[in-house]
Each structure stands twice: as structure tokens, then as C-alpha cells.
């Protein structure tokens, strides 16, 4: 995934001013790549598919930077006329009080207020601006990683704050209509898991349980990882020497309860793993509220790749 070339110095472009904030709103793009060997995590939008659609609705590159709005609570006021798009979770978005669709593009007139209330379906909505967001990238990315004090509008890993100005990276946008529905996870969600890593060291009964019983999304969930609760998984491996860990890695610490490692995970780790979720499954997990029932479905790298490339092809 290449980082978008954003034309900078677009200071004359319209802006959205932050007037109110909720739990967490972050500048995110596809992530920061090429520095994991230095301990720099990948970051990026958890639901990269929703960010991709929000960008597509404005004619942006799918990996252009947008805003990841978790749980709502964000209020923005337009300083000038600007086309914007939203996709992903339904956070009850309104324009001057008028209800907006969860997925679509629309125009804000000067002084109009775009507000996100709270989740009706899913957890995270993505807001795209024409061309992306005008700010200084670090190592090719604007993705915000609070723990590493990297990315975001200030380059220091800060979440959006009242008074922040979101400036569009370009003036014009080529707005489009959503060509398909974007469903949010409901009560039970299937997540594809590319099996591998240390899976051969787990006990047979544990593997049977892992793929045949339901898991629950725990409340201990953030951008680093999501804990699942369910059957206790036993692994015969004792201590492991730390190694690089991919996105979506399903690691099982000694308590037998898996943790799915997401975009802001540490770059190396030493717990045995069943493999890693497919990128499409990672995006879906980013929308699953605590208590959601999860089924893990084993897939091959080939199957996961095919589905991933099909998704990318939709944006060409």
C-alpha cells in the first residue's frame, strides 16, 4: 500500500474547525511502513475498508488520510464550502441537525456544523476531506500513534482537540455515490484467520474449540489489540523468543484467552499465535463492540489474498 502524494501548502483551502470532541478522533491513513525494524508500529485506520470508501466517495486515493471517529461525540464547523464524505459506523451524523446517511458524500456550506452523536451500528466512522488532510507526514504517514507520540495534526500523536483545524489537501473533489451497501457487524461475526505461526503447538482439543465455539469481544479493546473471551486455549510451547508480529496476529498468553493484535501493536512479541486475521477480518473487528459474538474461520493465505485483492479492485 503506497502512501498518497499529497500536495502541501493548501492553506487557502477550506477547513473544518473542531468545536467538540468525543472519546477519540484521530488522523489516520493506511499506516506507517518501512520502520518496524526500528520499533515504529504501523498504525493506520482500523477499518481501512471504511476509510477507503470515504476516500473513494470524494475521488481520493483509498489510503489518503482521514479522521477515524470512535464512538462519536465529534462536532466540526466548516469555514468555507467543502465536499466531505463519511463511511463506516453509523454514529448518527447530522448537518445542522439534519440526519445524514452513514455512508455518503455531501457538501458543507460555510458555517454549517457536522456532528457525530453516538454509535447506532459499528464503532468507528471515517471522515474524508478533498485530497486528504493537509499536515506534515512523518515517515510517509499522518497516522496518529499516541503511545509513540507520532503522527496527527501536530506530529506528536495527539488526538483531535477543540480548536484544531482540518484543512483539505486539495480544493476540488469528484464526488461519487456509494455503489454498494456497507454492512456493520451485527450480533455474530465471522472472522477469517490465516492459520500458521505456532498453531501446531496448540492442543488438539483447544484447536477444535478455537474454530468451533463462539468467542466474545472483551471490553479490554483498543487500537493495540482486542481481547476475546471463551474456551481456554492450551499451548505446549513454554517461553518463546520474541519475533516480529504481523497485523491481526492472534496471540494466546498463558491465561489461554486470545488477544488479536491490531494496527498500534508492539512490533515484536513472544506469545504463541494461531496465525493472523485476514486484513478484511481486521477491518470488521475494528467495528465490533464489546460483547459481540465472534466465530473464527480458518483460511489459507491464498484465500485471504484473493478477497483482499477483490476489495482493492472495487476502488480502481
Amino acid at each position: 500500500m503506497a502512501t498518497p502524494e499529497i500536495s502541501r501548502a493548501a492553506s487557502g483551502n477550506a477547513a473544518l474547525v473542531v468545536e467538540g470532541t468525543g472519546p477519540l478522533a484521530l488522523v489516520e491513513d493506511a499506516g506507517r511502513f518501512g520502520a518496524r525494524h526500528l520499533g515504529v508500529t504501523q498504525g493506520g485506520a482500523l477499518d481501512w475498508i471504511a476509510l477507503g470508501w470515504a476516500n473513494w466517495l470524494l475521488g481520493n486515493a483509498p489510503d489518503a488520510a482521514g479522521i477515524e471517529i470512535a464512538m462519536g461525540g465529534l462536532t466540526l464547523k466548516a469555514t468555507g464550502r467543502m465536499a466531505v464524505a463519511i463511511a463506516g459506523a453509523d454514529l448518527g451524523a447530522t448537518r445542522d441537525g439534519e440526519t445524514l446517511p452513514a455512508n455518503g458524500s455531501f457538501v458543507l456550506e460555510p458555517g454549517q456544523v457536522l456532528a457525530f452523536d453516538q454509535p447506532r451500528a459499528g464503532l468507528r466512522a471515517y471522515l474524508a476531506l478533498p485530497g486528504g488532510i493537509d499536515a506534515e507526514p512523518f515517515m510517509g504517514s499522518l497516522s496518529t500513534v499516541a503511545r509513540e507520540q507520532l503522527g496527527g495534526l501536530d506530529g506528536r500523536g495527539s488526538a483531535l482537540r477543540i480548536g484544531d483545524r482540518l484543512i483539505a489537501a486539495s480544493v476540488a473533489a469528484e464526488t461519487r455515490e456509494m455503489p454498494c451497501a456497507m454492512a456493520m457487524p451485527q450480533d455474530e461475526v465471522t472472522l477469517e484467520l490465516v492459520t500458521g505461526a505456532q498453531i501446531a503447538h496448540f492442543e488438539g482439543a483447544s484447536l477444535f474449540a478455537a474454530f468451533n465455539q463462539a468467542w466474545q469481544v472483551d471490553s479490554r479493546a483498543d487500537r493495540m489489540g482486542v481481547r476475546l473471551t471463551g474456551p481456554e486455549l492450551r499451548c505446549q510451547l513454554g517461553g518463546m523468543i520474541s519475533e516480529g508480529i504481523p497485523l491481526g496476529a492472534v496471540q494466546v498468553p498463558p491465561d489461554g484467552q486470545p488477544i488479536i493484535l491490531l494496527n498500534d501493536r508492539q512490533t515484536i512479541g513472544g506469545y504463541p499465535r494461531l496465525g493472523a486475521l485476514s486484513p478484511l477480518a481486521c477491518a470488521r473487528l475494528g467495528q465490533c463492540a464489546p460483547g459481540t459474538s465472534i466465530r473464527l474461520s480458518p483460511v489459507t493465505p491464498h484465500q485471504a489474498r484473493k478477497a483482499y485483492l477483490q476489495q482493492l479492485a472495487l476502488w480502481r
Binding site: M1, R36, H37, E243, G244, P246, R305, Y308, L309
Partner: peptide
Amino acid sequence: LIDLVPSYTTLLVHYDVARLSQ
């Protein structure tokens, strides 16, 4: 190559699936 993460005994190779299969 998207990322290459050497550690004590291993290297993690993260490659671009748009360019090549596993």
C-alpha cells in the same frame, strides 16, 4: 517489501500481496 523485522533468531518478511503470492 513492506517491512522486514529482524529479531533474535528470526526475520519477519511483510511483502506486498498486490505484487506477489505467498
